[in-house]
């Protein structure tokens, strides 16, 4: 793939890609990723004229959970954005966004265990086993842990091809996360459905792209093979492309 054409004006021409990301984009994204904390704190403490939340525990729980989901969807947006907008180096931001997803998911779970259930572990276990929407959400959180642990350069190198396979778990995590959100809503499912729609677009993009790439090679394609393909399998191409 060719890099950006020399005629295209590019911000900060004095810096090479490496330095632009390290000195500018990454710090900016890092600070932006902390903004939800400020927003949540403002609502909690009544700063900037926001009314303090009447039910701070539920508020924290919902906000942290939704923020985690936002970051998961952001990580899934990287590949389409790179391919469609030609932002070749965008994946450099993916690790940070993924770690923020884990960070907010962990805060979400902490609020639930510490503030919502008052550290009553028997209730936590009962909830995880008996309440399907919590089972689903907890599974998503558990699956995030290996991804966070193996997010370092060293682990990437050490795991090699297996790293890519492992990190495909994010597709499952995203589905579980949206499902968890959808399932706990009492009645008004508009917002969870919006998340489901966005996720469907992000995953659908990958499926379509991989199908289009495979069809011109009739020899290697099994006649009925398309219908049974899973999303995860279809996503293979993204990483090998």
């Amino acid at each position: 793939m060719t890099t950006t054409s020399p005629t295209r004006t590019r911000p900060f021409p004095g810096l090479n890609v490496e330095r632009r990301y390290r000195l500018l984009y990454k710090p900016a994204v890092f600070l932006a990723s902390l903004m939800p904390i400020g927003w949540i704190a403002s609502h909690l403490l009544g700063w900037f004229g926001f009314l303090p939340a009447v039910d701070p525990v539920k508020f924290l729980e919902l906000e942290f959970g939704q923020t985690a989901l936002n970051f998961i969807l952001l990580t899934l947006l990287i590949t389409p954005a790179r391919q469609l907008a030609g932002l070749t180096h965008l994946p450099r931001l993916r690790r940070m966004l993924g770690l923020f997803a884990f960070f907010y998911a962990a805060l979400h779970f902490t609020v639930y265990v510490v503030l919502d259930l008052d550290l009553n572990w028997r209730m936590v276990v009962a909830d995880i086993i008996k309440r399907p929407y919590i089972t689903v959400g907890f599974t998503a959180l558990l699956l995030l842990i290996p991804l966070a642990v193996t997010s370092t350069q060293r682990m990437m190198r050490r795991l090699g091809k297996r790293w890519t396979k492992l990190h495909r778990l994010v597709y499952l995590i995203a589905i579980l996360g949206v499902w968890h959100y959808y399932w706990q809503v009492k009645l008004d499912v508009r917002e969870p459905l919006l998340y489901a729609l966005i996720l469907a677009l992000l995953l659908g993009y990958r499926v379509v792209r991989s199908l289009r790439k495979r069809t011109p090679r009739p020899a290697t394609t099994h006649p009925g093979g398309m219908t049974g393909r899973t999303v995860a399998a279809a996503c293979d191409d993204i990483h090998t492309a």
């Binding site: 009447v54 039910d55 701070p56 525990v57 539920k58 510490v114 503030l115 919502d116 259930l117 008052d118 550290l119 009553n120 209730m123």
Partner: peptide
């Protein structure tokens, strides 16, 4: 159990 709105943190339930 229930969470009583306005109870102090850690003792809501």
């Amino acid at each position: 159990t229930e969470r009583r709105i306005g109870n102090p943190f850690f003792h809501e339930r």
